[in-house]
Nucleic acid binder design. Structure first.
Lengths: 131, 131, 131, 131
DNA sequence: TTTT
DNA sequence: TTTT
């Protein structure tokens, strides 16, 4: 049938990424939190969600992503289960497949673009496009 | 800054919707589960997630959605917290803003289209489009 | 089989919306242009596309959207054909089903939120959500 | 400010892909057409759009994609301009960054999954995910 | 708690 | 130029 599992979120980083390596593999994994606000007429609610990312994107998160920063995340929702002290535990998180830096001030634009040139080069398919 | 929180999932319904009404409001709320599979070369993983929907969409879920059925969901990720026996509890779910029926057999196409004509009329903006 | 046609774009408005009414129907239609930039290491390209929107969203575009403004558009791609002087002509445009205002400066946030309270109330399903 | 240009379409291939190579680069480029139907109560409309894809995805399109086949496309809208006989010409197309095969019959599931194992291995980040 |  |  085919599947589809796509998440796009623009929010603020709630804690600095921690980067570790999968034991026995030289694959970096970065984890951090994201908060996405939603304001309507009468209320404001925030979706807090943990973000995981792998490989080069994880390295760049470790280098450039900091608490408070706005970030555009594209990825998929994932559901993990494990046992803890004989108890079943489970958790949703977003596996980020693409991360985009977003400047929060018009004035910062110039600087952002240059300082984030490397990260932005990480977006999907950047190497494949000839024109 | 603006926010973005968009989820699109194509999966199978894991339990029949239960529909109830918000007390004091005549607003229907439907809840059910969705399983989204993801196969790669070496493994298969499934994301289980609870779906909530409101209003006319909720009514139609109560009427047409059944366990096992494939469904295309568009909505947003939401994070709820509450207290239970003095313990903080929290949960992620997807608030479905648009639901689309998906036939799983080519042969069913004809019938699906007609039996689901009403539901499919519920998609975003259906009333607004003049041509 | 089900269909899917979803477009999400964050860009700048290239001309002020023109709002007209479908003759014989009191349905407003707004049209304007959007430019979405894409920078990579070696080049910058811009996707120019025409946006159409209907109903209440169209009215709000007429009232609040102006040339140069950044805008987040969600909708679907549409393909129109017609005859002009015996020639077949065709055109792609995006039918916007949801429009979100995006402030371009952190400082503007407060004001934006309030001045755009009405528009932001137009997002999908705003009326359906009970909490 | 950051940009966003995301297109997701599920439709049928309208012509077999033609694959050529960028002169001087060993980069394959595949082009084909897609038709996305949209039925509402009173009408049916079809969005025809040209799809371009590069690299390994292009090769797989050349090998596996055929006219009539349903396909899930994820990518971005692109706008190209050129001169033809002194006339300015322009065109929208979708640059596909990810393509997913979608079986149209439940019965085909088994075979599809296996025959398309290679293509599906091309989805975003397949190599990066450790579990 | 789970679907194909 | 068009698919189901």
């Amino acid at each position: 049938m085919g599947f589809l599992n796509k998440v796009m979120m623009l929010g603020n980083v709630t804690r600095n990424p921690e980067v570790r390596y999968i034991p026995g593999r030289d694959l970096p994994v970065a984890k951090f939190g994201l908060a996405v606000n939603r304001k309507t007429k009468d209320k404001e609610e925030t979706c807090f969600i943990d973000i995981v990312t792998f490989g080069r994107t994880a390295e760049m998160c470790g280098e450039y992503v900091t608490k408070g920063m706005p970030l555009l995340i594209e990825g998929r929702l994932s559901y993990n289960t494990w046992e803890q002290e004989g108890q079943k535990r489970s958790k949703h998180e977003v596996v980020a497949e693409n991360i985009q830096f977003v400047s929060s001030r018009r004035d910062d634009n110039r600087n952002d673009s240059s300082s984030f040139k490397e990260p932005s080069a990480d977006t999907i398919d950047e190497d494949d496009i000839p024109f």
